[in-house]
């Protein structure tokens, strides 16, 4: 149990990040690399392993940010973890991108109650509501969902709001009076995915590599 190594991937936005949890020491590489995720993602993984003095075959499980997010970005992540899981015969852990975003808000600012709103383009927003649970992990209060900007309804309670939808649709979003603060510059990261994945690994919430399929949420694409 003490020798757990998890490699985590976050490719759902314009930022590509990879994290390595090596016996609870987490390191991360990230880059604002829109449209270049395919070129950098495996190099990041190898660099992290090199720095930790590990080989890819030492990795116990891979995890990834499984959506919602950029369709293409999610498929970069899915292709990588399906292939690593298959080739190394290790399990995959699917993590909600919005949960990772909430977790990153906790990591950065200690926020324990957050409504997340990520730009889904086409005047729509991916939303989720998370609160800090056991093990210092942000847990969903409701299922992640997709909503149009006009129909967005933010709970009027003492919570924070985080995500890039706030700046994208600034003029169209009405912030309720009880909101404590807002962060439009927080993105999901691989280190946040990694924190959630480790917990899921111990709870046996892993899957076969072939089951690492993006949760697009937006399924009407034609």
């Amino acid at each position: 149990m003490g020798n757990l190594q998890i490699l985590s991937f976050e490719t759902s936005s314009s930022i590509c990040s990879v994290a390595l949890d090596n016996k609870s020491v987490v390191s991360q590489l990230s880059e604002q690399s829109a449209n270049r995720h395919t070129e950098v993602v495996l190099g990041f993984a190898q660099k992290l392993l090199d720095e930790a003095g590990l080989r890819l075959s030492d990795v116990s499980a891979v995890s990834w940010s499984a959506g919602p997010g950029s369709f293409t970005g999610l498929r970069v992540g899915a292709s990588v973890v399906q292939s690593l899981g298959f080739a190394l015969k290790i399990p995959v852990i699917n993590v909600s991108t919005l949960q990772a975003l909430a977790q990153e808000a906790y990591i950065l600012h200690g926020i324990d109650d957050v409504f997340v709103a990520m730009d889904a383009r086409m005047s729509e927003i991916y939303c989720g509501y998370y609160k800090l649970g056991s093990n210092n992990l942000m847990q969903p209060e409701i299922d992640d969902y997709l909503v149009s900007v006009e129909k967005l309804s933010i709970p009027n309670c003492k919570t924070y709001i985080a995500g890039n939808a706030l700046s994208e649709y600034e003029e169209n979003i009405c912030i309720p009076s009880n909101i404590v603060g807002k962060f439009d510059d927080i993105f999901p990261t691989a280190r946040a995915v990694s924190a959630i994945a480790k917990y899921k690994f111990y709870k046996n919430e892993t899957c076969d590599p072939i089951k690492a399929i993006p949760n697009y949420i937006r399924n009407k694409v034609v």
Binding site: T38, L56, S79, S83, A87
Partner: peptide, 19 residues
Amino acid sequence: LAGALLVGSMMGKTIAYAW
């Protein structure tokens, strides 16, 4: 198709890397 090519390419490269 870019999005279609990406899947097989990324998988091919990743399996090659892992092996």
